[in-house]
């Protein structure tokens, strides 16, 4: 029994120990799932990127070959440009349209709630369905919804998706349509936190609408914008489904993005090693971008 005499310090340590363990226990199921379904596969993906993957004959170590092959492939190089244009365009467009929607639809009236729900629908609709819908809307004759509208104005028809000069922009428009309502919700939450008395004070000072936006609203929703920007940057780079269902990367590869190239490499050409390498490159770039955006945001906050 003598050995079990505990000093207060040790007892505290044990309590702290128990306290420290408890949250982990609660987290364990989630972490375990994340480990099995997220981190192990990710690790395996990184591992496979160094091999010529031949599941039955045994994988062959090829070092950095897959990486050099992917990075020197001119189609991947073209895809970088498309991915950046699409990612940046969709992110900025999504934020602009999302903010505009949020400002327009902020409020408690029932009609606004209904409109907000309607506007939010694209976010909860499966991307594949949205893609098919936009394919019909973009249909390059006067039968297509958009072209029939243009027809009323005496314009068109415009082959949105079948012209390599317009296909990327048409894809971007659909992306913004899907992304903006999501941003709207986050910005709405930010707007709800703006101190009303500031608006009242501003009204008494007789400021213009623009000044009110610039000096009260914008600073107040900065944290929300920061989140939106981070999420958009990540989403923008790994864009896949939108392009895959709308154009499949065509015509003439003009909408091929990084992930559609990786998909083609992995599943049409059976080059899993190369596809893994391409995915790892994307992971690194996304990670770098997220860290940078976060760093800039924090530095801004401090200032």
């Amino acid at each position: 029994m003598t050995a079990t005499v505990t000093t207060p310090g040790r007892r505290r340590a044990r309590i702290i120990g128990r306290r420290a363990v408890l949250p982990w226990l609660f987290l364990a199921p989630g972490l375990l799932l994340a480990l099995v379904f997220k981190f192990l596969p990710m690790g395996k993906g990184v591992w496979l990127s160094f091999f010529d993957v031949r599941p039955f004959l045994g994988d062959q170590w090829v070092g950095l070959d897959n990486y050099t092959r992917v990075l020197t492939d001119h189609r991947f190089q073209d895809a970088i440009g498309h991915t950046l244009v699409l990612g940046v365009g969709m992110s900025l467009g999504g934020i602009l349209v999302g903010s505009a929607l949020a400002l327009l639809l902020e409020g408690q009236a029932r009609s606004l709630k209904i409109i907000r729900t309607a506007v939010f629908l694209p976010v909860v609709t499966a991307t594949a369905v949205v893609g098919e819908m936009w394919r019909l809307m973009y249909y390059p004759t006067s039968d297509g919804l958009i072209n029939s509208g243009l027809g009323l104005l005496g314009l068109g028809p415009v082959p949105y998706l079948d012209n390599p000069d317009t296909a990327l922009w048409a894809t971007m428009a659909m992306g913004i349509w899907m992304l903006a309502p999501y941003n709207m919700v986050i910005i709405l939450a930010g707007l709800a936190g703006v101190d009303r008395s500031l608006y009242e004070a501003a009204a008494m000072d007789g400021v213009s609408l623009w000044q009110r936006l610039r000096h009260i609203t914008l600073p107040a929703i900065r944290p929300a914008l920061g989140i939106v920007l981070t999420l958009a940057a990540i989403r923008g780079l790994r864009v896949f489904t939108e392009v895959y269902v709308l154009t499949g990367g065509g015509p003439a590869g003009s909408t091929d993005v990084w992930m559609t190239r990786a998909y083609t490499l992995g599943f049409t050409r059976n080059d899993i090693g190369g596809a893994s390498a391409a995915s790892v490159v994307l992971l690194c770039v996304t990670l770098l971008l997220t860290v940078t955006v976060n760093y800039l945001r924090k530095r801004g906050d401090v200032r």
Binding site: K44, L48, T241
Partner: peptide, 22 residues
Amino acid sequence: AVRLHRVHRLAATLAVSGLLFG
């Protein structure tokens, strides 16, 4: 059909990231 589609996409994503046992 939607579920199949989702399974498809899920399988694609998982396999790209190397979840072969999944």
